[in-house]
Design a protein around this nucleic acid. Structure first.
Lengths: 94, 94
DNA sequence: ATAAACAAGTTTATATTATAAACCAAATTT
DNA sequence: AAATTTGGTTTATAATATAAACTTGTTTAT
């Protein structure tokens, strides 16, 4: 009746990140931080979790001389997001 | 952009309970336990939280000689559920 | 009549999670 | 060259979820 909700996605910040990445090719750390309003520390930790789960890729490079971290959603991430939304609907469709 | 999700409702079991109660007049502990598949301990704790938040009422009585706990959603609970759903849509409508 | 098993929960302990505070290295500005 | 800013990471703490253990009383079997 109530399907299990993917615990990786059932987190306010991680869900916001995935939602954001689902709509774009890629986004960098600073942009995600701005859009979500997260603190850098929290964002760093949650990006790690999404990355460890294989839901996003995190690439570190440089823009000029400054470090730059770029994130993209993976096919697995998109699929998990889709499934999460479907599961949620079982809860919220009264 | 990403609205805050009510932390009382952003919990798998509590959300299931509210979802269930939103559709009925009332439901007792055992029924909720069956429908959600929760352990009694977990359910007890989460019902307390929903009750403390004013989202449900919990009435203790007896059915014959056996104790029976009956739960109902409150108007505040229904409103919070509605708001939670609206907030969620900001996350999942890509 | 009493011991064993069951019902309906509650309390407490533990594991996990989320979050913020403190920190670090390098770049830029004054 | 000292101070500030950028772009993060690591670590510590607070909050949460969950299960295990316990309680109280009932029913069933011996």
């Amino acid at each position: 009746m109530f399907p299990k909700l993917d615990p990786i996605l059932h987190s306010e910040l991680r869900l916001a990140v995935i939602s954001l990445l689902a709509g774009v090719e890629s986004a960098d750390f600073t942009y995600i931080k701005q859009q979500t309003g997260a603190t850098a520390g929290n964002l760093s930790v949650q990006l790690d979790k999404l990355s460890s789960a294989g839901y996003i890729t995190v690439e570190k490079g440089f823009k000029g001389k400054m470090p730059r971290t770029t994130c993209s959603i993976t096919p697995a991430g998109l699929e998990a997001f889709r499934k999460y939304i479907d599961a949620l609907k079982e809860y919220i469709s009264t």
